[in-house]
């Protein structure tokens, strides 16, 4: 045990820059894909609820199409999805390697996941409140912006945290096919060179990143919840 720590102390100056850069790459991938996930997943989730029977703009056909698309996205294992969208990734980013390229499959994988979570949170908003707003003469877009989203905010944030945690785990998988980041390090040093120090260090770093995301999320949920 003591030898182990001594060796870690010796090697740490070499390991640190690698791990730090890997963490930055992971954060880079996760943050950008989170941004795209919100950008597309939030409206998608709103549409899933609004087009429902008894929703703000019932449209069963639209609902069926969106639901199917989301289900297809949700049922593909991420590793398969990553390979399946390779050509799209190349089209958008010009490459299939590196953190920037990984943002494409990460976003595509997380959008349907987040959209379902958004849908669930919005469904929990009291129907009576929506009706009261209609009775006050509110437009439907106003109801989305001023009633549905604010009322569901704690659930939306909790859902976003789940999505981010999923993205962190996906991003490690993306590392496996050359996406960069902590996953990449774990594979290259830990798996291919049997270097346990790197393997365990990346595990600790990943846990820390997930823990940080969860704590910030929990704090925000408590802040915005007035129930």
């Amino acid at each position: 045990m003591i030898e182990w720590i001594a060796e870690l102390g010796q090697r740490w100056p070499d390991m640190w820059p690698v791990l730090w850069l890997g963490t930055l790459d992971t954060l880079y991938m996760v943050l950008w894909s989170t941004l795209f996930t919100i950008l597309f997943g939030l409206p998608l989730g709103v549409l899933l609820v609004a087009t429902d029977r008894g929703g703000l703009t019932p449209a069963p056909a639209v609902k069926a199409v969106l639901g199917t698309v989301v289900n297809i996205g949700r049922s593909l294992p991420f590793i398969v999805l990553m390979v399946a969208v390779l050509s799209l990734t190349r089209l958008i980013t010009g490459t299939t390697l590196g953190p920037t390229a990984a943002i494409v499959p990460l976003s595509i994988g997380a959008i349907p996941f987040f959209a379902r979570l958004v849908e669930t949170s919005l469904r929990e908003v009291d129907r009576g409140v929506v009706e009261a707003s209609l009775a006050m003469g509110a437009r439907r877009l106003t109801i989305v912006g001023k009633v549905l989203l604010p009322e569901a905010l704690p659930g939306l944030i909790a859902g976003l945290v789940m999505t981010i945690v999923a993205l962190i785990s996906y991003s490690a998988m993306a590392g496996a096919i050359g996406g960069g980041g902590l996953g990449d390090i774990a594979i290259r040093y830990g798996y291919q060179r049997f270097d346990d120090y790197y393997l365990w260090a990346t595990v600790v770093f990943l846990v820390l990143v997930v823990q940080a995301a969860q704590s910030v999320g929990d704090f925000l949920v408590r802040r915005v919840s007035h129930r």
Binding site: A135, G137, A138, P150, E151, V224, H226
Partner: peptide, 22 residues
């Protein structure tokens, strides 16, 4: 026009229907 007319008709609800976030 219906929306405008509704401004002139207040409604009170059994379960209050207040916005919990406000």
């Amino acid at each position: 026009r219906l929306r405008a007319a509704r401004h002139g008709i207040g409604m009170v609800h059994q379960h209050f229907a207040l916005l919990s976030s406000r």
